[in-house]
Simulated scan of single mutants.
Amino acid sequence: MLGLVVMIRRFVAAARTAWRDGTFRGAVSGILILLVSATIFYTLAEGWPVLDAVYFSIVTGLTIGYGDLVPTGPVSKIFTVLYALLSVGLYVLVAASLASALTKDAADRRARRKHRRSED
């Protein structure tokens, strides 16, 4: 349990660090805009409930693709291809930014510990 708390704490710290980067904020904003757009599109074009449309949008963007929901119309299929191309890149950018922030925070923690030890 303690390990989970430490991991969550480090993830939140990394998210704060990443949030200072304009590229990260832009990618998160882009994901949210795409997610809302795709949800609206699938709700209107496919007639899916909002929860199903959000679920499909996230599963497609993360390249999970369970196959339980599939677009049926040609316009929906074209939209899904374009949505997947855009969203996958943004999800990767967010993940890379978080990973970079995690390593930066870890290096900063090590440097602070080393500095404290040298003062003693």
Rank of each mutant, 00 (worst) to 15 (best):
D21A: 12
D21R: 00
G22E: 14
T23H: 07
F24P: 01
R25C: 15
A27Y: 04
S29L: 15
G30P: 01
I31H: 00
I33P: 00
I33K: 10
L34F: 08
L34W: 07
L35E: 08
L35R: 04
L35G: 04
V36R: 01
S37N: 11
A38D: 04
T39G: 06
T39P: 01
T39V: 12
F41P: 03
T43W: 15
T43F: 15
T43H: 15
T43L: 13
A45I: 11
A45N: 10
A45K: 00
E46H: 13
E46K: 13
E46Y: 09
G47F: 11
G47Q: 05
W48D: 14
W48E: 10
V50I: 15
V50F: 12
D52T: 13
D52W: 04
V54E: 11
Y55N: 12
Y55W: 09
F56M: 05
F56E: 09
S57N: 09
I58E: 05
V59W: 04
G61P: 02
G61I: 15
G61Y: 03
L62Q: 11
L62R: 05
T63R: 12
L69N: 11
L69P: 09
V70E: 04
V70A: 08
V70H: 10
P71Y: 04
P71F: 04
P71G: 08
P71H: 08
P74D: 07
V75I: 15
V75S: 10
K77V: 09
K77T: 10
I78Y: 06
F79K: 03
V81G: 00
A84D: 08
L86E: 08
V88I: 11
L90A: 08
L90C: 04
Y91D: 05
V94G: 07
A95D: 12
A96Y: 05
L98R: 03
L98P: 02
A99R: 02
A99F: 08
S100L: 03
S100Q: 09
A101F: 03
T103W: 00
T103H: 01
